[in-house]
Every structure is written in C-alpha cells, then in structure tokens.
Nucleic acid binder design. Sequence first.
DNA 1: CCTGGTGCTTCAGTGACATAATACAGCGCG
DNA 2: CGCGCTGTATTATGTCACTGAAGCACCAGG
Lengths: 135, 135
Amino acid sequence: MSLKHQVARQARAGDETDDPADMTQQSRPVYLRLRDQIAAAIIEGEYPEGEMLPSVRAFAAEQGANPLTVAKAYQQFQADGLVEVQRGVGMYVVAGAAERLRRAEREHFLAEEWPELRARMARLGIEPADLFERG
Amino acid sequence: MSLKHQVARQARAGDETDDPADMTQQSRPVYLRLRDQIAAAIIEGEYPEGEMLPSVRAFAAEQGANPLTVAKAYQQFQADGLVEVQRGVGMYVVAGAAERLRRAEREHFLAEEWPELRARMARLGIEPADLFERG
DNA sequence: CCTGGTGCTTCAGTGACATAATACAGCGCG
DNA sequence: CGCGCTGTATTATGTCACTGAAGCACCAGG
C-alpha cells in the first residue's frame, strides 16, 4: 500500500468511511467545492456574462446537494459583486465578472500559493522546468 | 444579514474586503499542519534516520498544541512504517524514511496535484514565465 | 521496587458542516 | 389576481472533525 499523506479527498458527512484504519481525512466542504466549480465555469465562459446562473434549487438537484448549501456557495459571489441578484428572478453574471475573477484568482495564486508550492517542489526534488516539458 | 455560519475563506475573488471579520479562513487542522511540518523536517534531514523524534509532549509544548494532537500527527508516520515505535521509549525514524517519504510525496504531487494545478493555471492564464519573474 | 520518561487509550466538549422542513419576499406571466 | 418561479430567512436536527483532560500501559534507570 502506498503512503497516505496529504491527500484531500472527499468524505464528508453522510459518506461512508471506506478505510476504517485511517479516518484522518480532511475533506473539502461541499459549499467550497461548489464555489470553485462555479468560479471555474464563470471564468471559462460556461456561464456567460449577462446570463443567469442555475437557480439554487436547480443546481442543488443537479449536484445532489442542499439548496441552502448552494446558496452559501453563491453568496460569496454576490458579496464580491460578481453576480447581480434579481430577487424573484435569478442571479446574473455581471459584465467583466470572468476577467475580474480570473485576475483575482491569478493574483492569489502567484502571491499566496506559488511561493510555498515552489518550496515544496524544491524539497521533493522537482524542477519547475520539468513540469512543462512533459505532456 | 448573512447565514449564521459564514466561513469567509475567501481572500480570492474580489479585492473589496467587505467583511473585516475574517476569522477562520478554512484553517488547516493542527494535526495536519504538524504532519506536514514533520514530514518536511524528515525529508530535509532535520530529524536524521535512526534518531528519535521529539516526544509528543515535548513537541506539543514547543508548538503550543495538545499532546494528543501531536500523537495524531505522528500516527500516520508509524502507520506507513516510516517511524518505529518503542513504547515507553520513543519513536525513531527508520532507515530510508526520508527517501521513501520524498519519493511518495513526489509521486503524489506529480500524479494527483499537478494535473489539476496545471489546468487551473491554464484557466488563470498563468504562463511558466510568470512564475519565475517573481521568484 | 519506584520514579520519571515514553506512547496510547478513554471520555467528553465544542463547533463547523450539511441537511431538512417551513415560511417569507419579489418578479413574470397568463 | 393567482400561479409558479426566483432568492432568502428561520429553526431544528444530525453527524463528524478537532481538540482537550485524565488516566493507563510500557520501559529505563537509580
């Protein structure tokens, strides 16, 4: 068996523990998973600007989640002004949301994640150049 | 008003920090933080092979954590056979642990993390050149 | 022996997370 | 208007990860 370190699979409430000997799994909360999923969809134009996002109920049914959980994921986008809420109608992607989102995530990645990622790669003996040479 | 349990793990989309009450930004569990820290120390030879790891109590006191939490972090290493437990004495780093650990983490990184990391970088429009201009 | 170090087990509390059921508020359309 | 869709608020329930405190089991040395 392999070493099981810093994996981050998903095994949240309601899931069965497939491995009784190892119950130490930090699972990503559902609403954060959904949030990332939606963010990626917006950036990639899957939800075009000006278009309506799936309703919380529809998206919840599609993802097998609770509408409240979906609402929690959506909430962060409206808090950031990336979607406009028309109560009783739906939530619409505002103009420039995709670019703003990409810019913000890009900045966050370069400033926060990359440094420690680079240190970790160095520790593991991985050269950054190697990663882009292979397919 | 917002939901009662808002976990503003944002710091990403949106520079308008609307809510200063930025509490637990998805704080990584302590035992996982410690585990990574120890893994890095083993790989870098800070805890040489054959040497004893700090006792759970000592390490807990040093890190300001609970001994049980430290034990939980250690547990994964002994489960993977990277440390040898001598009950009543201490936990010792087995021979070849550093290399095995590096190899395993490297493998995991390349197989699991890198693909989606690469996809995400592509989505964010990050070129390899961008990564080295800052470092 | 006994004392002090180790790891390890048991019991318990707190809070986040997710879900459910219910109800309310706003909008569009026939 | 009434119906059906939207998001939102409220309350309650259940589960589980995380953490902690106290105590047990083991070993070495005086």
